[in-house]
């Protein structure tokens, strides 16, 4: 048995060396980029608040921005129009239930992240961070998830607990870190 194994080992060893030699040939052409140079693109907000910028906003500030830039699609006071309503929502019963911010969204940080990256629909990335905080505060306040005078900022926003936070089951736990 052992005499048969040694020639096989002799073949395996050079193959391993060859594979690692090929791996080392990756051209490594990526150019280093500084945090300052990628800051305009660095817009992910994570659920624990990582990524939230300085600044803040209140529901009162948000109501002004909303009327000017959002109501045309989402209706007055978030009641819905050509596009989804942003306020209210019956408790989720089954998949015919309408998913709303109040009855479904598990994390408040998703509001800031999504408004800043995707809204308004025709002019994404046109809002200042202050305006995004204010709109986030306004929508949370309309849904009575925060007080009407509460300020949303990097410290307060991640602490807003959404009602459906625990309404989820991870589909493939073995594939999910």
């Amino acid at each position: 048995m052992s005499t048969r194994k040694s020639p096989a080992l002799l073949i395996v060893v050079p193959l391993v060396l060859l594979a690692s030699a090929l791996f080392a040939q990756a051209p490594k052409l990526g150019k280093p980029i500084s945090a300052a140079d990628l800051s305009d693109w660095d817009i992910n907000i994570l659920p624990d608040g990582t990524g939230l910028p300085p600044g803040g906003g209140t529901p009162v500030d948000g109501a002004r921005v909303y009327a000017a830039k959002c109501a045309v699609c989402h209706g007055p006071e978030g009641k819905g129009g050509a596009n989804a309503r942003l306020v209210g929502g019956e408790p989720i019963k089954n998949f015919e239930s309408e998913k709303t911010i109040a009855n479904f969204w598990p994390y408040s940080t998703t509001l800031f992240d999504y408004i800043r990256r995707a809204m308004p629909y025709r002019q994404p990335r046109s809002l200042t961070n202050e305006e995004v905080y204010a709109l986030t505060a306004y929508i949370l306040s309309l849904n009575k998830l925060i007080g009407e005078h509460d300020t949303m900022n990097a410290q307060t926003l991640p602490k807003v607990r959404m009602p459906n936070r625990d309404g989820f089951i991870v589909r493939f736990p073995d594939k999910t870190p």
Partner: peptide, 21 residues
């Protein structure tokens, strides 16, 4: 990230009212 499309859109609701993530 719990982005819009994973936190909300592609989270199918089950008959018991919970949703798959």
């Amino acid at each position: 990230g719990m982005t819009f499309y994973e936190a909300r859109t592609y989270a199918p609701i089950l008959p018991n009212g919970k949703a798959y993530r």
